[in-house]
């Protein structure tokens, strides 16, 4: 049996409401909230980035796994907001978590899909027998250009998953990927904010890849939507994942638990992994779960998982996603938000 041995998520404490962003730019808040199905999003503190989020999520994954960090053979961080242009995030994360130095480390980038990429590669290493445990993390402090529709959703957070053959809490039964060159969203070297192709990001990009990937893995597994307790689809906004789920034949009850976007926003590489973590927080032994990510550019990874008897034992060992979403939020006004996000041009020291 191969699967998730431990998992952890991190949700920053700061938030900004969609109303405040809309008011700032003279947009109609109600239509944005309705169109995106989103109330507010997380904002990283001035002292947070992909690395600190990865460490926080990784530490909780270790708590739940209950293993010696030195047994982890690889660590991959998927993000489109690695703090350095050149210098790995992963080296800092392994030092902070006490992993290595005998460890394979890499940073991944694939827009919003880098997190499931990291999970996929970590899983493959364990499956091949190369290593006992492997860590895959998806984390982001994503940026949206001021006033752009992306600004309502681009948020911060992440999740970490330790893969292994022993102490498995959620077995990975199948994996599937679907990828093509579809330029719906990009950021060129040296650019501060990403650009996107408007409505082209919908049907030809998101839905084409998410639906193809989900259908592919269902066919591969021989399972039907009704066999699953939970399904998670990448959450660039509130609407897309619900529409994708419906198109595939999933019901609202199957989608709700992993649908964290309305309170969290789009955490990019952390999005569908955090949705999965939210499902793992409550799943019972035997429950089947489907997760399909999406990364612009474009591609999707799908996983089918089944909770084991060990899952209930580890759920309470670290904070749950929905508890973190509700816990002691601090709402920022737009001015404070742009200052925290480094969107104000300052004099250099």
């Amino acid at each position: 049996m191969i699967g998730i041995v431990g998992y952890g998520s991190y949700v920053p404490r700061y938030r900004i409401k969609a109303d405040d962003i809309a008011n700032q730019w003279g947009a109609d808040a109600e239509s944005f909230k309705k169109g995106l199905l989103l109330e507010e999003k997380t904002v990283p503190g001035p002292d947070e980035d992909t690395i600190t989020i990865s460490v926080a999520a990784g530490r909780d994954a270790l708590k739940r796994a209950g293993i010696d960090p030195k047994e982890i053979g690889s660590c991959y961080i998927g993000s489109e907001s690695h703090p350095y242009a050149v210098k790995p995030s992963g080296t800092i994360v392994i030092e902070a978590l006490g992993i290595g130095p005998e460890v394979h480390v890499a940073d991944f980038e694939f827009a919003c899909k880098a997190g499931t990429e990291a999970m996929y590669v970590a899983y493959s290493h364990v499956k091949s027998g190369e290593m006992k445990y492997a860590l895959g993390i998806g984390a982001d402090t994503s940026q949206g250009a001021p006033g752009d529709a992306l600004e309502y959703t681009a948020s911060a957070g992440g999740s970490a998953f330790i893969m292994g053959k022993e102490k498995v809490a959620a077995e990975i039964l199948h994996t599937y990927s679907y990828t093509s060159d579809t330029p719906d969203f990009w950021r060129r070297e040296g650019e501060f904010y990403p650009r996107h192709a408007g409505r082209f990001t919908g049907e030809p990009a998101y839905f084409e890849h998410v639906l193809s990937s989900a259908r592919g893995i269902l066919e591969l597994s021989g399972l039907k939507p009704e066999d699953f307790r939970f399904a998670v689809f990448h959450m660039p906004n509130g609407k897309f994942p619900l529409r994708a789920g419906k198109a595939l034949g999933f019901k609202k009850e199957q989608l709700e638990q992993g649908w964290v976007v309305n309170l969290m926003g789009n955490t990019y590489s952390g999005s569908s992994p955090t949705g999965l973590a939210s499902c793992l927080d409550v799943a019972k032994p035997g429950d089947l779960m489907l997760i399909t990510s999406f990364g612009s550019g474009a591609g999707s990874d799908s996983f089918i998982l089944r909770a084991t008897d060990r899952l209930p034992e580890i759920q309470g060992l670290a904070p749950k996603v929905r508890d973190q979403l509700a816990d002691r939020r601090i709402h920022l006004d737009y001015g404070k938000y742009v200052a925290y996000r480094g969107k104000i041009r300052m004099n250099e020291i």
Binding site: G45, D47, E48, D49, I51, T52, V55, A56, R59, P83, Y84, K87, I92, A96, D327, R328, E348, I349
Partner: peptide, 25 residues
């Protein structure tokens, strides 16, 4: 005790991480 970025200026230097405390809720 948690892990955070402590200093990030000036821009050409390495980022400096370290420990901070967090109120236990």
């Amino acid at each position: 005790i948690i892990f955070r970025k402590l200093q990030s200026d000036p821009r050409w230097e390495v980022l400096q991480y370290g420990y901070k405390a967090k109120v236990v809720g």
